[in-house]
Structure formats: structure tokens, C-alpha cells
Design a protein around this nucleic acid. Sequence first.
DNA 1: TATTGTTATACTCTATAACTATA
DNA 2: TATAGTTATAGAGTATAACAATA
Lengths: 150, 150
Amino acid sequence: MTAVTDSPGHTESTPYLLIRLASTVDQLFADTARTHGLTAQQAHLICRLVGGPVQMAALGRQLGLEKSGLSGLVDRVERHGLVERVRDSCDRRMWWVRLTGQGQKTAHATHEEVMAGLEALTADLGPAEADLLKAVLERLLTDAPGDAAR
Amino acid sequence: MTAVTDSPGHTESTPYLLIRLASTVDQLFADTARTHGLTAQQAHLICRLVGGPVQMAALGRQLGLEKSGLSGLVDRVERHGLVERVRDSCDRRMWWVRLTGQGQKTAHATHEEVMAGLEALTADLGPAEADLLKAVLERLLTDAPGDAAR
DNA sequence: TATTGTTATACTCTATAACTATA
DNA sequence: TATAGTTATAGAGTATAACAATA
């Protein structure tokens, strides 16, 4: 997603550049996911699990999904053999989602490829410019809304 | 979309910041579209038409859609009363997609709101920082792939 | 009764392939 | 025969509401 109206190309305003940047990032992520036979959402899911199992409710919050939507997404990734559901031993209503062995490999590979692609994007910048970009992005996103989700 | 693993927040690398920025932009666009009863894709479509009617084939290219996908998308937006198909008078195989009166209003409003949201995002930056951000973004995107589409 | 997940529905989006109508 | 669009089909993503199991 993301395009609105890129039109010409000569004197693009910052808003348009931001839209194009978002588009580029999204595309990189989708392409990388597809390399591993996954959709972008499925790749997001498994990348969230590299730090260890996560409870369904927490996962839904992180991904900005309704519980029913998450249920289906986990189903599909489970069908790929990348994750499994584990019931919580204390509260039997809760389930944890955990990467399988294959899921770990895929998640790590996907994560690395996305990071490499993004680093390649900024590779041309000199050290000063790179630092500046980082600082400005940090400022932009410090109190930007809509990040916890999605 | 876009998240991978935002984890902490303290020392985020530039790649993570780029992912979060993309997420923010996407979210702004989706939210704005929903305000007008549209999906993000539908909003993209009508925003592409503010400059005048566009031929189906060209529209598909701009939006990165297969012709069948575009056909359905135009159907849905047409059902909202925002666009209409006009047959080309010379080559009767071709169709142009045109905003209706209501479509113009919605398209302009959506476009303005997205732009305003993006400008708000960078409003805190000083003029020097803003110029630098623009320059860096231009460099990043000059030869970045995957922009013509999507 | 409140909470965690799943199921049932209903759309939207997207891709591939087959088809229609023009050229 | 080649091109512009549509239709058919199928899977994925997302939201709402009703439901089951557990607390």
C-alpha cells in the first residue's frame, strides 16, 4: 500500500517522499516474505516470536489484530508448520504461540533479509547523513501515534 | 502492516525506525480512508484520479494491480458512487475511469487529510532539519526499486 | 459473570486463468 | 492474432457477533 498520487518526480514534497518510502519498505517486506512462501502478515507474526513464545492476546495487540483475525492467521502459519499452540499450564483459557524448529529458521532468515534490505537502502549515505536521518526519524516517531498496533 | 519486531524503544536502529515510519504512514492513510467510508486501496484509487480521468490499463500500472484486481476495485468504488467508467471513443476496447462529483469531493478531502497528517508528523522539525530530511529522502528514493507500482 | 479463544459470516484484496469484445 | 477488460475461482486478511471453555 501507499501511493496517493506520486505524479511527476521533480519537486516532490516531503509528504510524498514519506509515502514513497513507506511503499518501498512495505514492498521489501512483502517480497522477502514471499521468498519464504509467506505473506507479509505471516512473516510479521513469526518475526514477533523470535524472542520466545507469546500469548495470543499479547500477539493480537502487537499486530493490531482482532482475536478472530489472529486466530485465523495463526491457523494458516501453523498449517505451514512454522508455529504451534501451547496451552498455558496455569490458566487453561490461555494459549502461547511458539516457533517450531523450522519456524525459527524461517523467522531468522526473514528478519535478516529485511534488515539487510533496509540497510542497503541507506548504504549510500555518508556517516553524517546517516546519523542525521536516524536522529530525525527518532524525533518523528517519538510521539507518533499508531505504532503499538499494526 | 510493517512491524517485524519493534521490541524496546531505547536504541532502535535505522532499519527499525524505517519500519515504524512505514507503519505510521500506512496507518494514517488507512484511518483517513476509513473516515470517508473507504478502504485504503479505494482511497488510493480515487486519489489517482484527481488530475483527470485515467485509462484502466494505466491505472492498473500505477496501482500495481493485475487487470482483474483493478476491475473489481473499480467496481466497488463505482458502487460507492465515486467513479464511473467512460468508454474511449476511438478505441472501443479501452475505458477511462473518472471521478463523479461526489468522488471529487471525497478524493480532495482524503488527499488533503493525508497530506495534513504527514505534515503534522514533520511539523516539530526545524527548517534546517526539515530540509535535510527531504534531501536524504530524495537520495534514498532516487534509485530505490518498487515505487512505480503499489 | 468475566475472560480467552474459536466459529460463523461477510467483505475486501489479490493472483491466475479462461473468456468476450474489439482492433 | 493481439489487446483491453471482465468473469470465474480461490486463498488471504480483517471486522463483527455469537459461541465454548475456563476462571
